[in-house]
């Protein structure tokens, strides 16, 4: 096992002549980042390039950018943003607020793992409705997995009644931008898929289809979903620090196992 070098297909740096630790030029997938991409490449082009071997096409760039806008802020009702605000409101460090958002936003309810599982669905089922119907009937727990057994079909909202408008708007926009097969198929078959899932599509389900159309793997989609939802968490954490903890909900408690219950009047 080689332990003295870091191996990578992503990044290469050339050193300054006077210092092997200072960068004279940096190349991402062969492109000169500071000498040529800077000022000419869009942020999402760089993002795509980091995960994929080739730069995105124009339509892929537009799709990823639209998806990034849709995911940028889950809003203060979202559990991951709520977690980040718990950091901000008490003056915790910036990194801890983002770590809180990542930890809570990593799970199987609207989080990174849900996107991973939904993308596995696209990889396994593609545009085969019967395969989807079988998968949406329920996933089994993986023995010994650190993740709990999925409690709802990944990519769908277990508490939803009908497809939320912002989900429909996002699906319509992204399906219109996609040069892949999954988003348009999802849009065309949405009523039947929602019937099979017994609950409406969630934004995580749209994101999973979009990442799949962009040819990302489930592992890459999970990472990107975690990453792209952080801006809102960061902004809300800072905002709550300014409001202060006295204006942040602390909620009444109803303790159901109180040893002092008998002593109360």
């Amino acid at each position: 096992m080689s332990t003295d070098k870091i191996h990578t297909r992503i990044w290469r740096e050339e050193a300054e002549h006077d210092n092997p630790f200072a960068t004279r030029a940096a190349f991402c997938r062969g492109y000169d980042v500071y000498g040529e991409m800077l000022g000419n490449a869009r942020w999402v082009e760089m993002l795509y390039l980091l995960f994929r071997e080739e730069a995105p096409s124009a339509s892929q760039t537009d799709l990823l950018e639209a998806l990034a806008v849709a995911l940028a802020n889950p809003g203060p009702r979202d559990a991951s943003v709520h977690a980040a605000m718990c950091g901000g409101v008490a003056g915790s460090t910036a990194a801890s607020s983002l770590m809180a958002a990542l930890a809570v936003g990593a799970g199987q309810l609207a989080g990174g793992r849900e996107v991973f599982l939904a993308m596995e669905g696209w990889a396994l089922c593609g545009t085969d409705f019967d395969a989807w119907k079988k998968r949406l009937a329920g996933l089994e727990a993986i023995p010994g997995s650190i993740w709990p057994k999925p409690e709802h079909p990944p990519g769908f909202d277990p508490h939803g009644v009908s497809t939320a408008t912002h989900v429909k708007q996002t699906l319509a926009c992204l399906a219109g931008l996609s040069s892949g097969a999954f988003l348009p198929w999802l849009q065309q078959n949405l009523p039947d898929l929602e019937t099979a899932a017994a609950c409406p599509l969630a934004l995580s389900g749209v994101a999973a289809a979009a990442f799949s159309d962009l040819c990302f793997s489930p592992e890459q989609g999970e990472m990107l979903h975690l990453l792209l939802r952080l801006p809102g968490a960061a902004a809300h954490a800072l905002e709550q620090e300014n409001y202060g903890y006295k204006r942040f909900p602390f909620y009444p408690v109803e303790l159901e196992d109180d040893p002092a219950a008998g002593e109360m009047p």
Binding site: H7, T8, R9, R12, A15, T23, G30, Y31
Partner: peptide
């Protein structure tokens, strides 16, 4: 664990032009 530039074993594609892609 400071890592000099030369200790990165790059195994990806060769240098290419962004504008010309």
């Amino acid at each position: 664990f400071p890592t000099p530039c030369g200790e990165i074993a790059y195994q990806g594609v060769s240098i290419r032009t962004w504008r010309g892609r």
